[in-house]
Nucleic acid binder design. Structure first.
Lengths: 102, 102
DNA sequence: CGGTAGGTTCGACTTGCATCGTACCTCGTA
DNA sequence: TACGAGGTACGATGCAAGTCGAACCTACCG
């Protein structure tokens, strides 16, 4: 059962949902940029400076976290996003490698 | 350069295009069913009996072959589709394994 | 020759999704 | 207390994509 923020457990992740989340150029770009940074890197949504409005940015991050790609971490003042690298590697082995390879 | 049927070479295959092609339930189902059969299995589009019209079926197979997932083989009377297993494994290692694992 | 099987193409409709602006929320800070 | 930074929620809009029916094409068969 997803938590309040809609984070699915690894066994709840659905391949179709994940593929759909990755099929968008902006979202695929966000995941690819996470993969170029050290594991565990936390970034605010705004730090990606996507060429869309704030609400659209929020929408894309919602799609990614509900698919299981990202986890939102509450830091009081600001929330940050983290790539769920280990869980994704466990549930969908090789998937992130494909994204990293482009 | 794609041939007359729109088949891309392995190095021309685009991850985004492939992910988009796989994000549709009907198309993902077709690939999954190919993966449950011996490598090299040829099937007609109609043999999948998708719950959509003939023209829609043709549309989905066009999306898959233009993404590089399938190759259409002309047999005179009927055309058959083949999963491009080896080429996909070379270009996107692990991708088909993910689809097979569901 | 016509009929049939299997696919394709075309135009039209309809659904889904990305996008936006606005309003709102929650901290932390001045 | 008020304000700003960072995100979220909601309603509306516009475009991309799925869907369909009808017409067409090619190869085989009777």
């Amino acid at each position: 059962m997803p938590d309040d923020d809609g984070h699915p457990l690894p066994e709840e992740m659905d391949l179709r949902t994940v593929l759909h989340a990755l099929a968008d150029p902006l979202r695929l770009g966000v995941i690819a940029r996470f993969l170029r940074e050290p594991a565990g890197t936390e970034r605010t949504c705004a730090s990606f400076e996507l060429p869309v409005s704030k609400s659209t940015t929020s929408h894309h991050f919602k799609v990614m976290r509900e698919a299981g790609l990202l986890r939102m971490v509450d830091h009081g003042n600001s929330r940050t996003a983290v790539l769920r690298r280990e869980e994704l590697d466990e549930r969908f082995p090789g998937l992130l490698d494909l994204v990293a390879a482009g």
